[in-house]
Design a protein around this nucleic acid. Structure first.
Lengths: 232, 232
DNA sequence: GTATTATTGTAACAAAATGAGACAATAGTT
DNA sequence: AACTATTGTCTCATTTTGTTACAATAATAC
């Protein structure tokens, strides 16, 4: 980044992303850790003056995951005065040997737009950015302490995701193209945080008329092989 | 406004509000018209550097309606590049004899956070601001053409309001404290845009255990008087 | 007073959706 | 060939919702 870049971005506006993936049994999100600070945070970024908000988020999430065509939903905009913390940002800059004059604009108050992404866990190639040590998957019930209001963001993202689960088709973004009914049920259970009845779930899904049944999946187990399905 | 105020506001960020009221039969929203321009718009404003987003909206809506303790919900943040239109803003400034140098910051690209408000129609005392001719109620199905993306905002606000109708209690904000079952049903019908079955609606509402039944309301009509209810 | 009218509150039954359990089919193992 | 665990579907019970019916009024008309 160069000094001129300050003017390229909308001032005091950022975005943060809650990137959901599903490893087959648990719902996970991506969390990064800033160099030498112990600060864990959601992947975020800024919006260029000549770039739409959606594109800014899309590009940012793509860079970090190596994926294109990411399913994104805006879930809330965080605008309280107390959410920004200049001391935390200062430490992040200092530990990364960045000039706090040049990057002083990062210390101000930010309104941040939250997006969640649903991605296929297995296709991801994680790429830390310049400021961060690492970016890793964490189970949503085993998150490290997140800086500032990022924990609140995760909770809100999950709340909105749960609400959208009934209205929008979610599974297709977290699963491979072909999946078993059990896998689909596990996605629902992971998002809702509760067990569902197998027979009721299957009846419901089939009655929605959104699935195509394919060949069976032989898993080498000593029981009946399940069918594979895909979304219409 | 003075020149110094430019620095008091977050640049390139605005809010817009969809203020819903219910006149007894129709759902209405507040729309203002800018002086000498023919431009109809949603009430909006900017966010001061030392003010939370929620407070900015709360204050703005309060000033225009004369109400306190307004029920507000954030519904979406609009961040496309094409949504801002400097020609329209310029005309608004010119027709109000405002210097386009001093107020040039209003011509730029804005990310706008949408909130909807639910208020008791009857308590409102409307106050146009300095830039606008008038502020008036319009039925949601008889809106004038709105400038920029404000029509899209109304549609999105209504969509989110409908979704929230099942989850959150909405009637209390659009009705007087005590109301009849019929009035409550009319609010639901106005929001959902469809007729509901009287008996089913009544049974549902009573079974939710959220209403208190009070005395009857004698309307001077030749039929059984309905009970008044309030929310618990 | 008494019949009339329109609306309200609730009951009764039908239809649909969901919960819960049972069971046959079956892919691999013993 | 018997056994095991899981899947797909069926059945019946329970709950929720749709629909109709009807008694209980508050004012009006006579």
């Amino acid at each position: 980044m160069s000094t001129s870049e300050k003017r390229d971005y909308i001032q005091n506006v950022s975005y943060d992303s809650v990137i959901f993936g599903f490893n087959g049994s648990q719902l996970k999100i991506l969390v990064l850790e800033y160099h030498n600070t112990g600060y864990f945070a959601l992947p975020g970024g800024f919006v260029k003056m000549d770039e739409s908000l959606d594109d800014a988020v899309k590009n940012g999430v793509s860079q970090r995951t190596g994926l294109k065509d990411i399913y994104l939903e805006q879930f809330y905009t965080f605008g309280s005065l107390t959410r920004s913390d200049s001391a935390i940002m200062k430490k992040i800059l200092t530990e990364n040997n960045l000039d706090t004059n040049e990057y002083g604009w990062m210390l101000g108050r930010f309104i941040s737009i939250g997006y969640y992404a649903l991605i296929n866990y297995e296709n991801v190639k994680l790429k830390p950015d310049e400021l961060s040590d690492s970016i890793n998957w964490y189970s949503i019930d085993e998150l490290p302490p997140l800086m500032m209001d990022h924990r609140e963001m995760v909770d809100k993202a999950l709340e909105v995701l749960r609400q959208n689960l009934e209205r929008k088709l979610v599974g297709m973004n977290l699963l491979p193209v072909k999946f078993t009914m059990k896998q689909l049920q596990q996605v629902y259970e992971a998002i809702l945080g509760e067990k569902l009845r197998r027979t009721t779930f299957q009846r419901k899904m089939l009655s929605l008329d959104i699935l195509v049944r394919h060949e069976k999946l032989f898993q080498g187990k000593a029981h009946k092989a399940p069918y594979l399905y895909s979304f219409k």
